[in-house]
Structures are given as C-alpha cells and as structure tokens.
Design a binder for these strands. Structure first.
Lengths: 347, 347
DNA sequence: TTGTAGGCGTTATCAC
DNA sequence: GTGATAACGCCTACAA
C-alpha cells in the first residue's frame, strides 16, 4: 500500500498517464473529469497510497480548516464541557480543534501572541478570565478571526458569546434571600480580577442592597475555584459562619461542594445551620449531599456557539460583529434551605 | 501596524533593502547576520507586521509542530485529565495539540482515517476503548508517527503507554475480599467490548477463583460508565444486592458514586449493608459520602507520557518501539467497609 | 475534457 | 555576509 517515501501528485499523474491538473481535478471538482479517466486516477491514488500534502494545499487555499480554542485553564468540568461542545461543533463544521491553555506563569496574553505568530489556524476562540490591559491589547491587535468567550470587552469589534452572569447571580441571590430567608451571606469567589467573580460579586452586592442587608467586608473571600482550597478555608471558618439565616454563596460548584463537605465534617448541618449555594451546575452539584442549589451555565453550548460564530466569520470576514448572550438558569435544590422548592427532577 | 493584506517575506526584504535570504536568516537565527542589517530587517518586520506563513514554512520543513490527540470521548474527568496532561507536555516540547474525539456514530476508526488524510499533523496519540478489527487495521496501516494509549495491541510496532489495569484491579479485589470480607461481588462495568472493562472483569474473575467465591452471571452488569445510568440501575436493584459481605465493584468512580447515591436514597447503608468500590480515583471519589475506595489511575501522566513518546518518535522515527506501563495504586477509603484502613490522608 | 505554465511563501544550496 | 535561484506540492487560469 502506502510506500514509505512521500508520494506526490506528480507520481499519481504519471502512474495514471494524465497530467497533474487532471489529478487535482479528480481530487477537488470530480464532476469536471471524464468518467474513465477519473476511475484510472482514483485507482492510481489508491495504489500509491497518495495523500495530498496539506501544507501545499494550504499555501494555495490559505486555510487549514483548523481553529484554536484558548482557555485559561483545563482543570475541572467547566472547561471540559466547553471543550466538548466546541469540539462537537467544530467537527460538525469540518474544522479541527487546536487546544491550548494558559499554564503556570505564561498568561493568555503570551499565548495569544504565540497563536497568531507562526500558526496555521484559520481563527481562534479565546476565553479570557481576566481583562488585563495586556490582554485587551492583544485582543485588539489580533490578526486572525477571533471570537471571545465569556468576557465582556467594551466596544469590542469581535464576535463574542457571553453568559448573562449578572442576571443568573441576581436570581440566585434573590432566591436565597427571599425564599430561603438568608440574612447573612458569605461570598466565596475566585480571584478578584476574575471576570466571572466580578460579575457574581456585583450581583451579590446589588441584592444585598436591595434587601437592606449589611455588607460585611470580612464575609467576602477570594480563593481559586478549587475544591480543596474551599474545603480548607471552610474547615477553619465554618463554625463562625454557621447560624440561623446564614449561608455561603460560592462562585462555583466545586468550592460549594468543598464547603459542604467541610461543614459536614465539622458537624455543622447543611442547610440547617449553614446553607450553601454554588454556581455552574456541573455534575458535582447533583452529587453533593445535600444537592446544591446553583445556577446552570450552558457550558457546552457556549463552546459550540463560539465555534459556530468563529466559523461564520472565517467564511464571511466582513460581517458585522455578533454577540450571543446565553441565559443561565436557577436550579433550586436542597443545599440552600428553601422549603420544598423543587424546580426540576433530580437524579 | 499590521496591514490588512498579507505581507510576505519579499515585502520585508524590499523594505529593509536586503534579499529574501537575509530576511530568512534573521528569522531563523541559524547563520550569522551582520548586526546592522539584522536590526534593519527586524525593524521592517515590525513595521510591516510581518508574520511568516506557516504553510510555506511547513512545505519546506515538512512539519507543523502539531500533534493530534484522539480520544474515544470527551465526557468526564477521566478524559479531561488526560487532555490536561497531554496539553502541558505538548507545550513543554513546543507542540500544539489538536484534539479530536469519536462522537455519536462515527467511530475512532473513521477518525483515524480522517486524521492522516489531509492533515498537517506531525503525529497522533490515540486512545482506543475498543479493539475492533477495523481499528486494529487502521492502526496497523497508519502513516504518521503514532502512540497508542491505554490499549494493549498484540505485537504492535507502535509506541504505547498503558496502565497496568489488571494489577490494579486485582489489588482492589484482593483488598475487598481479604480486608473487607466481601463474599458476594456485583460487577458493574462499561460496555463488554471496552478494553478497560475487559481487563477489570478479568481481574474480577481471577480473584473470585482465587478466593473460591462463586461466579454468579447475573451479578455482572454492563453499563456505560455514566453516573446516571448506574444510579438508575442501582435504584432498581440495590435492595436485592444488599446483604452482609456484599459489595459492588464499579468499573469507574462515576458509576460507583451513582450506586452509592442510589443506595443511600433507598435507605441502604454504605458500606454496612452494601459496600462499593470504584476505579480511577477521579475527584468524585473523594467527594462521595462515604469516600470511595478505588484505584488511582495516573490520567494526566498517561497523557503526558504519550505525548512525550510521540514527540520522541517524531524526532527519531527509526527508534525501536517503546512501551511504558504506568502503575495504578490502591486507594483505600471508607466505602468498601474495610476496618480502619487509611492508606493516605483524605481531603 | 485535458494539458501547460505560473505562482503561493518559505527554506536551502550554492555562488559571490 | 549576502544574494540569486531552485525546490517544496498543490491549485487554477488559460490554452488546446
């Protein structure tokens, strides 16, 4: 079958006793070639195990059918689901997905540079978790088709798909204050510069004000979205947090689960002595005991829509920027202590 | 800055009043270039916003610095961790990672074909969960450097990194039969053709025989590795499974967690009335109540080592095939009912 | 319907 | 040190 030395279109042409262009036609516009010749060429292709060279092809066509997906991290189900959705949609549209993630020291800004530097990508979908100046700058000067996930960039000329975090977080906060009767709310977020944390904290402050609840600065914590860290913090603080009408708003389900586990381990009953809610509705929310009240974020959909937008722009570079806003959904379960609220079936 | 029309190396050369070759030399820093000319060229590059065309470059160099990672699925932490490890290692070695996964109808075999068809990949790391004839065939005739994950392919000429599943599963089975005193063991695996399930089932049978325990055909189930499916099955069967010395060996942690949850919901105490163990030691294992006894599979490491092997082969195509076997590790927690066994600290 | 020839943007091999 | 020039493998007018 496949010889070990690279076989080119010229080899096929010779073997089929036709010209190079005819082989090319067979490869691309099959209809424009005589039936008999086509069969002969196809036979030669098979015999030689010929595979068109994608570099040469790309050099002419100026496209690789590859798009990049740049994520701030790869840890946990949140990103995993985005990848899953993006991958499925990319395949659907005939693209391959090139994955990359900020890691350790080097931030997204450096990666953005690298991605457009000597790259074969037709475009990039990028999720930024912090909007530093350098990142804004990198986005603004980006040379490839671009789609921004999750972050709101003011006056951005790029396509973007965002979650209406504010709305979801407000709904959650109203639920716990109105339905579950929380009066003291501990906020446990990610890093202070994280865009998601910022949006959720804003909602926290807004509803606190709405309900005339005092803002206690010491009740706002900034961690890193990880289970373990939240567990450790809660293990230390949970007794001081506990009390009637007290609850924790964790900025994601992982941290919420860690807090529930730490509370339970410390003998603090959830939700009776300390209620807890999370965010994202990853699978861990249902597996926690009690199951977490949370806000469902359509992660896979977000990935899929971003890829879709990106591919549309690649196909039609001049179209006006589109912004897709995905609505999150309040998922009321038992960890918040609201009486008998079951908005949907639970596993 | 960057003009909108593609600027080539020729433009840079003209602007810097040098030849194309000199620009190329500046770019690749191989040979010495006069300091003054170098500066002039670099200035021109900046002024024009020149980025070398990766296709043309690849056409000459015959490499893209991209490697593929082909997974059977993208669902859940298992694959997510493999991706994470692979991505980190790829970056480390200067490669980009192109992700792909079998989805719905089209199996890995079709994907393998597609990947080498018109692709710019320097090599592919592939994880196969079923060793059908078509897949074996696709692997055997693969034209690119290849590294196989997880599956044992007899007499394979390829590099591979595998987990010694058998050994891990045997250790687990011995633990539950000897330390925890199980005498009836329900096995809940993935699909019958799944390579992991096969290995774990073999260990199950082996230790059953070792311990002179009867094999009850009705006690072997084949599901799909999902939490929900396992929950549903257990919800229905858990009362008939319960009993002193009875336990469930689930082939992954997700299913084990589902079974624990279903048992708890049905009022069957874990591990007193029904013990449960899982496999993989994903994070869910620690979060389950009681925490799961399981076998730790170094998923991220598996991904990283596969990429490493692959890149070594790309660099040195003629080297003899390497096979890396990673050892799993028994993690004894509380769900198995063994008395006071704590091999390691728990979160 | 098929062939010829030019070009895509690099790198590599020579000369100078 | 630097500059022509020939590959690399493919696509696509244009000609036949």
């Amino acid at each position: 079958m496949a010889g070990s030395m690279p076989v080119s279109i010229a080899d096929v042409a010779k073997k089929a006793r036709v010209s190079i262009s005819t082989v090319s036609r067979v490869l691309n516009r099959r209809q424009l070639v005589n039936e008999k010749t086509r069969v002969r060429v196809e036979q030669a292709i098979r015999d030689l195990g010929y595979r068109p060279n994608a570099f040469a092809r790309g050099l002419m066509l100026r496209r690789s059918e590859m798009i990049g997906l740049l994520l701030p991290d790869l840890h946990g189900e949140f990103y995993s689901e985005i990848i899953r959705g993006a991958n499925a949609q990319a395949r659907e549209l005939g693209y391959n997905l090139v994955l990359s993630s900020a890691r350790d020291g080097d931030d997204s800004h450096a990666l953005l540079r690298a991605m457009q530097q000597r790259t074969l990508l037709d475009g990039v979908a990028v999720m930024v978790s912090e909007l530093t100046d350098r990142i804004q700058e990198a986005l603004a000067g980006f040379a490839l088709p671009l789609c921004v996930l999750d972050a709101e960039v003011d006056g951005s000329p790029h396509d973007s798909v965002v979650i209406d975090q504010r709305q979801g977080a407000v709904a959650l906060m109203r639920h716990v204050t109105q339905r579950a009767g929380w009066r003291r709310i501990i906020f446990v977020g990610g890093h202070e510069t994280n865009v998601d944390t910022i949006a959720r904290l804003e909602a926290y402050l807004q509803v606190l004000a709405e309900r005339d609840l005092p803002l206690v600065p010491g009740d706002v914590y900034h961690l890193d979205y990880q289970y373990d860290t939240a567990y450790a913090l809660a293990a230390e603080r949970v007794r001081s947090w506990a009390g009637p009408g007290h609850g924790v708003f964790a900025a994601n389900d992982e941290m919420a689960a860690g807090i529930v586990a730490a509370a339970t381990a410390a003998g603090v009953a959830v939700p009776q002595e300390l209620a807890v809610v999370g965010f994202d509705d990853t699978r861990i929310a249902r597996m926690t005991r009690p199951p977490l009240t949370t806000v469902r974020v359509p992660m896979a959909k977000m990935g899929a829509r971003a890829v879709e937008l990106l591919c549309q722009r690649i196909a039609e570079p001049q179209r006006p920027p589109t912004r897709i806003s995905l609505q999150p959904e309040l998922i009321a379960r038992e960890s918040c202590g609201a009486p008998g609220v079951r908005l949907r079936a639970q596993a």
